[in-house]
Design a binder for these strands. Structure first.
Lengths: 157, 157
DNA sequence: AACGAAACGTTGGCGGGACCAACGATAATC
DNA sequence: GATTATCGTTGGTCCCGCCAACGTTTCGTT
């Protein structure tokens, strides 16, 4: 790809720029994830959700991070094999599996957190701190607008 | 996906927000492209590049928009069948195909341009005009930083 | 209490997009 | 003139997001 000769029509479009930036971010994170032995970004999302919510079902995990049930199954199976989480049948609802993070999983997640933070630092390097905050603020509003989420509804549900 | 219960670790990460925003943008554009009979966003990029540069080779087109040669071949074949462009062997370099946009192609591109503009308007709806400019400005710097491009080098090469 | 509807986890598969490998043909380089 | 590089094309792989189906279990309604 030759960035010098990309059409102006694309270079100036916010949608194209968003795509390019997201690609760079995914690339940076992907490299670090792969180096840490994690095949996909979704593993990080899964562990993060699990760490926040405590113990929950696979379906709930999927809903939280926007991952299909079938893919959650695969990721959970893999992470269980790595000792990052436990999967036990829920005695209260025998359809579900209760998934909970292990101590090893928390430690591993902490490592991934550092990698993600480093990747983000690298991605946003050309931006000043205030700019990053402004960027995040705008993106939050954009995302909220398209997910039917109303801002300020934190934990008032 | 339940946006209310996505992990805070993700919701506050610029990388995740960028990915989400880009996804929404791709979705909006993809819908409109599909409605216009275009199977992929890359077709728009291709026509846009072609309209700016005049007549060039497929390899050059691919480099400009970041598309693999093989994928350019498929897209060009398809767009040629639709009458949006002409593909002729380059007499000056018989390895290349000279690709040039047709009048129909320009008209079609104009229509796609309107669709893309509308999609972007929809994507950035919650942002004021100045905010959109600030967003674009920041993203331009981010993208430039990761593509080895120096700002202000417009056409001075 | 019974029955239909819904949710759960799992397996398997589909389609698109990005990428790579190889080939024959042609041009550039030394 | 021989090697190297580029071009267009074909064909393939891999990953990701998504859907379909199944058996199991729970919920909702009557």
């Amino acid at each position: 790809m030759d960035p010098l000769s990309t059409p102006v029509r694309l270079r100036s479009r916010a949608t194209w720029l968003l795509g390019q930036s997201a690609n760079q971010g995914h690339r940076l994170i992907g490299e670090r994830m792969h180096a840490a032995g994690v095949p996909s970004r979704s593993y990080y999302s899964l562990l993060a959700a699990l760490s926040e919510v405590g113990a929950t079902s696979q379906a709930d995990l999927g809903r939280r991070i926007g991952l299909d049930r079938s893919d959650v199954t695969a990721a959970v199976t893999d992470l269980e094999a790595k000792g990052c989480l436990e999967r036990t049948p829920d005695p209260a609802d025998r359809r579900r599996n209760l998934v909970r993070i292990t101590a090893d999983g928390k430690a591993f997640l902490a490592g991934l957190d550092a990698e993600v933070a480093a990747a983000q630092e690298e991605l946003l390097a050309p931006l000043a701190q205030e700019e990053r905050e402004a960027l995040v603020g705008m993106l939050v509003r954009v995302v909220a607008h398209h997910t039917g989420l109303r801002l300020g509804d934190d934990a008032e549900g």
